[in-house]
Design a protein around this nucleic acid. Structure first.
Lengths: 236, 236
DNA sequence: GTCGCCGTTTGATTCCGCGCAAACAACCGC
DNA sequence: GCGGTTGTTTGCGCGGAATCAAACGGCGAC
């Protein structure tokens, strides 16, 4: 491993994250220097639900999944995060146990700040505090939206909403539609929509026949975003 | 109306809110002075879901309900808030339309800051920003917990969780248990748990027979919090 | 007091997603 | 290529909450 060479590349990507937004060169450099670069293999766990919040992280490359196990033992996927996104932040700020488990969906590189160091920087630099507040605010907004989505009973709508959320988070536009280029299973979607993967499979089959989506093993492409959005918004 | 007399009483209560926590006398005074005191009658709407976020509010007395209408036209009660709680803050910070409607459940007094003024104070005073970050963080934590609760399928558990949340938010301990001293209907609980009020009624009937709760018209008392918590946690 | 409203209770029925089972298909290591 | 593993599809019956319907009970208005 040649950390020094990679290091600059990591730095260049990392400072594009929301946490670094609008910081001076100098401050961005110090913020980055305070973090540790960690390479995570696929399926490696960054932290567990219930752990004490000792670190705050940012995705540099790859993909990280946040999952939660509730009182009934059911697993929920809260969100998928890719480059630039900060996670573990609310737990660190509130000094509450992590509410979810963070797992690398594929080989990933992340930045890690130890909680005390980060809190120190936060107190010292208004700009970092500004960015953090924005990030946490966005997270709250997403979660409120999530509650709204999940409170609906209509299953097609929930799946459509989950699929669109997924596309927003980790989708890329390709010629014929929006492609989810990460290994997403029916199970993942099921956890996001709060359903079983049987129901997901059935619904996707129907949608595939109608030309709304195209899905294969661990791969799916949204072909008609408008119609999907119409389903999610109840405008059938 | 004699605003000048009430004003001091309002001030004394308002500064106990989380937003004022740890502020100097002087700063707290200025923060309070920047706000307008508003009296709201029962059922008055403070802002509507989808409105532009022009104000940020704090409950001084009374009770405010945040409700959301989702794509299916189903109403959800996000939370009930009483004295000291801040609301509308995420929308103001993110400059996104209010995600929910705020209604006074009973005659209430609230503090209102115009968005630009508040943002100005926020930028100038680190202490206010600290408090805001804490409040927003707590809100996020609550919403994540909410998602966890709602993703469960077991209905009794969802109702128990909603009831406990309700008790935490607006309950008061009385001799024989925790009483919800505000006019809470089956419908309210149904919206919080994502069910119909028929199901709530049936479940509460059973629990009443078992001595877990005591409920009447718009009134309910938790008699055995431990057993209820056991149901919510899946420890039947 | 009586009436009427509104929240609540309870029953009967319907619907739809879950859960299980079995077959299938794509990818993997050997 | 082969078998094993893992993800997906599809059929079928069950359960349980939604839905509709109807009656009840407390509370306020007059």
């Amino acid at each position: 491993m040649r950390p020094s060479i990679e290091h600059d590349a990591v730095r260049a990507i990392a400072v594009q994250g929301a946490l670094f937004s609008g910081l001076s060169q100098d401050l961005a450099g110090r913020l980055f220097a305070a973090a540790t670069v960690r390479q995570m293999q696929k399926d490696a766990v960054l932290f567990h639900q219930g752990d004490a919040p000792d670190q705050l992280l940012q995705v540099v490359s790859g993909l990280v999944r946040m999952t939660q196990i509730n009182a009934e033992g059911m697993q929920t996927t809260l969100r998928l995060m890719r480059s630039g996104e900060l996670f573990g932040c609310v737990a660190v700020l509130q000094q509450f146990p992590y509410p979810a488990t963070a797992t690398a969906v594929e080989d990933s590189v992340v930045l890690s700040w130890r909680a005390p160091q980060f809190l120190g920087l936060l107190k010292q630099h208004q700009a970092i505090m500004d960015n953090t507040l924005t990030i946490v605010g966005t997270r709250t907004k997403d979660m409120v939206q999530r509650v709204s989505d999940m409170s609906g009973k209509n299953v097609e709508r929930r799946i459509a909403a989950a699929l669109l959320r997924l596309a927003d988070q980790v989708g890329t536009k390709s010629g014929d539609g929006i492609q989810i280029q990460f290994p997403v299973t029916r199970d993942d979607l099921a956890e996001m929509a709060g359903l079983t993967y049987f129901t997901i499979s059935r619904t996707l089959s129907v949608w595939q026949r109608q030309g709304l989506v195209s899905s294969g093993r661990q791969r799916m492409t949204i072909l008609d975003r408008n119609r999907l959005a119409a389903i999610a918004d109840g405008r059938h």
